[in-house]
């Protein structure tokens, strides 16, 4: 099994854990964590293909840098939303956030 395969396997496992978290956890923070895990699984794929792939340019790395930046911004917004939710409803369970209107 080549290193590329190992990397892809790892990223798949990461992605599935993240997905499971998103789908089943009730806490909004843990869901956000799941999303981060899935993003990182994708980042790992980019790096792995950059490292072991046939290419010669640095597209993969640049993508990952962008991705991390976007993820950081997204986490900030997400956490802000969670805090807003907590203020409003006194809970961070996602089920409570089923109305568009306040």
């Amino acid at each position: 099994m080549s290193p590329l395969h190992l990397c892809l396997l790892l990223s798949t496992v990461l992605f599935c854990i993240g997905l499971a978290a998103v789908l089943v956890r009730t806490s909004a923070i843990l869901v956000l964590l799941g999303v981060e895990l899935m993003l990182n699984a994708a980042n790992l794929n980019f790096i792995a293909f950059w490292r072991y792939g046939p290419g010669g340019d640095d597209t993969g790395v640049i993508f990952v840098l962008f991705s991390i930046a976007v993820a950081a911004a997204e986490a900030a917004v997400g956490l802000a939303l969670v805090i807003a939710l907590h203020r409003h409803r006194r809970t961070i369970a996602l089920k409570a956030a089923n109305q568009l209107r306040g």
């Binding site: 997905l19 998103v22 789908l23 089943v24 869901v31 996602l94 089920k95 956030a97 089923n98 109305q99 568009l100």
Partner: peptide, 13 residues
């Protein structure tokens, strides 16, 4: 149309 984001996501998945 429950409004529950997770159940939507489940359907998508």
């Amino acid at each position: 149309q429950t409004g529950d984001a997770q159940s939507y996501l489940r359907v998508v998945a």
